[in-house]
Write a protein that binds this DNA or RNA. Sequence first.
DNA 1: GTTCGGGTACTCTGCGCAGAGTATACAAGG
DNA 2: CCTTGTATACTCTGCGCAGAGTACCCGAAC
Lengths: 222, 222
Amino acid sequence: MSGRNRSNPLALAVLICLFERPMHPYEVASTLRQRHKQESVRLNYGSLYAVVASLERRRLVAPVETEREGRLPERTVYELTAAGRAEMHEWLAELVSIPSKEYPSFEAALSFLPALAPGEAVALLEERIQRLEIQLALGDAAREHVDRLGIPRLLWVEAEYRGALLHAEHEYVVRLVEEIRTGTLDGSDWWRAVFADPGRPTPVPLPGLGVHDVGHRAEKTD
Amino acid sequence: MSGRNRSNPLALAVLICLFERPMHPYEVASTLRQRHKQESVRLNYGSLYAVVASLERRRLVAPVETEREGRLPERTVYELTAAGRAEMHEWLAELVSIPSKEYPSFEAALSFLPALAPGEAVALLEERIQRLEIQLALGDAAREHVDRLGIPRLLWVEAEYRGALLHAEHEYVVRLVEEIRTGTLDGSDWWRAVFADPGRPTPVPLPGLGVHDVGHRAEKTD
DNA sequence: GTTCGGGTACTCTGCGCAGAGTATACAAGG
DNA sequence: CCTTGTATACTCTGCGCAGAGTACCCGAAC
């Protein structure tokens, strides 16, 4: 009843909007954008209508009326069902209380770092640092602006969280660059050597770790 | 030639494996798993073969031979093309140097936090804190284990990064809970009031921010 | 001696979701 | 007055990707 259907948070956003009052999908989108939820939840119309259709199939929402104004396309207004209210609550509780494994693309990038020459890696990481600093500054500016408008922090926590992660990433990358630079990072000597050798045969050996049970045992691939 | 094709990092992982030497898809998967890349890159066979097919269409990889052992299914070995080498390098450089907007599910959860009763929110966040502490401990254990095996940190940076983010999240959530508890979080009084009122009419008003241009102006929804 | 788990090597199927397109109304600008 | 842009309200299309299934082989266990 729930499992893999809880993949797209946009569906949760829809449930929460309809919890407030019945709306048609486009109105849901407008509401979410007005509240800047599109910063935290991927939103586009293609997905929105698909998601609403899926919620309807699962009987979590139901159409109440379909109105039409002039010759504009017909609007179908949906309301939340009892099951929908339950699902909303349960899902949100799960999202808050259980950290889920995610795959940030920079983590992937880092895991492939030795495939770049050390010098290039440093240059690119420094570029990233600059971009991160811009984002941090933008975040601060937004924060101040919102403060001036007197918007309570409660409605801004997601942005604070984003800022905290951004800050941590910045800190980490700065340290990492420093360690590659100074050679403090264990393995960077080998790294440099491999790329210094002209005509290296196996470009990037990346030796296997040979560890198959570190903590959380072997979540299966498939 | 690149754009939306750079969505799935698994494709990059494949390119990097084939950069080392020609392999068949299953071997790519085994290699990635052996090196614990499945912690950083979503890997499953269904996607793998699709991704390889897509790379082949884009002429970034090409089949070299197809062997067969006994009556086991035929294995198609792929190699990297010149275009593939270029794409690999360019893509990896982009991934390292340009931070990309991501949508961690906890950010979504936080943005909907006021839809929960304050007391419940606190309880759930505390549950999360415990789970985060477990993950941090597991990470440390893995770290120590890998240290003992003498694996250079260079090959472990992605896990360090994950740890740093995890740490930041933990710190943030602890602070947040504290602030909700003590009422230091601006808006929590209103929050409590709304949920204290029995028979509240508009369950969660979540007033719109009314800000439409904070920094980065209006990336379009569609 | 056969059954059972686990490894090899893919294939099949079908929903999810993004991007682009459609059609109408309205407001402002030249 | 005619165009250009923007907002409203969806629909269409098709790839991406995950999960499950297939088919074979092997070693160990009962």
